[in-house]
Every structure is written in structure tokens, then in C-alpha cells.
Amino acid sequence: MAQSTKPPANKDQTSFGSGGSGLRYPSNGKTIYHRPLNRTKTSELSQASFAYLFAEMVTYAQKRVTGIQDLEKRLNVQGHPIGLKLLDLLLFREPPRTQTRPLTIIALLHFIKVNIWQHLFGRQADRLEKSSNPDTPDEYMIIDNEPLVNAYISVPREMSSLNCAAYVAGIIEGVCDGAAFPARVTAHSVTGNTKEDEMWPAKTVFLLKFQPEVVEREALIGKGQ
């Protein structure tokens, strides 16, 4: 991503047909798909440019929405394809020995907490939790004390239930779906009065609710071992 793609200097030189030039097809014919997958492994991006881009994404998603849930849904949908692709990319980059896909819920959650977070935000997620409520054994939580996407965002009071980390929830959902653990993922702000909550005012809980068949399969795997 550090490499800038030059706009074609001369239209006749492009190896693509008419109308094929533009930002998407650089004149030398080398698209992002021609680059080795490990090239951008350690490259970093500017947080400021991401913040501006994300602010525009939120503004874009805000157009013609019917409510806060609809807005969160749109942000979620924007993140979903990223998660699907990220799962494959990060597994590809693993050493061959550990290249297997996560097969249990715990392995999947660990993969998200460590690998996905490390790749996206440069650090691990802060905590993993399982729902303590016996009625909802299908719910798991990933906790981030200060999500990078919300670093500069203050949500107005009339939209207080909105959390723009719904975008990250979409990425997580994409990873889960890609790994064949279909789930619904939502992002929730935590507002409490404990000392810890005051220390992390932007603390966000990602709630993963797996489909019943996932839980069923998990139980069967447990028996088999």
C-alpha cells in the first residue's frame, strides 16, 4: 500500500482495452493482485488518513438511513468482505505448520484476538469472555478498551446507542463466516461507573452470537475427543 500507483501517462500505452485505464488499472499492467502477498506484511499506514477515510465512510453510511440500527448494519456490511479476505490472507502468511483454519470456537476467537487484531490495529484485543448467562451459551465477547476506529469519534447524545466500531464487528463477522462459524456480531459501548470503565471511556464489547448449528457441532466435536 506504500507504493503509489501512477496514473497512465499516455492512454495508448495501456495494455488494457479502451476505457481500461484509470486508477484501477495502472499503465504498467501491474495491479494489486500482481504484488506478492507478503509485501505489505509489516507496512504501516497513517492513522490520520485512516481517520479521515473512516469519517467519510460513516458520513456515507449515514445517508438515507432509517435509524441507528440501520446505520450500524451498513457499517457492518462495509466491513464484512474485509473479514472474509483477511482470514485467508493471514492464514496464508502463517508458517505452514500452523496454517490450518481454526476448528473450534476457542481457536477462532483466539485467532481473531491475536492475529486479526495484530494485523489491523498493531496490538491484541484486550480480553475474551464467554457469556455467563446459561440461557445464551452461544454468545462470546471480544473486548477492546480503545478501538482504533473510534479514536477521534464522539457520538452525539441523541445517537448515544451508536458505536461506529460496528465496522470492526462486520470484519469479525466476515472472519467467522469465512471460517464456517456463521455468527451475528454487534458492537456495544460500555458505560459504567466503575473505576475501570471511567479509565476507558471508549471501551467496546463485540458480541458474537453464533448460529445454533455451530454450537451443536461444537458439542459433537467435544464428545468425539
Partner: peptide, 23 residues
């Protein structure tokens, strides 16, 4: 420029109501 201008809910030239900026 960080907490007001990068906030998607702030409208340019309008009064600043950003909790994060205040804090």
C-alpha cells in the same frame, strides 16, 4: 484538528459539541 475535524458527526462551522474534545 484531531477530535473535532476527524469526527464524522461534526458539521463544519457549527458549534463544537464533541465529548472527546472536551475531555
Amino acid at each position: 484538528s484531531d477530535y473535532v475535524m476527524k469526527n464524522p458527526f461534526y458539521q463544519l462551522e457549527m458549534p463544537v459539541r464533541c465529548e472527546m474534545f472536551d475531555r
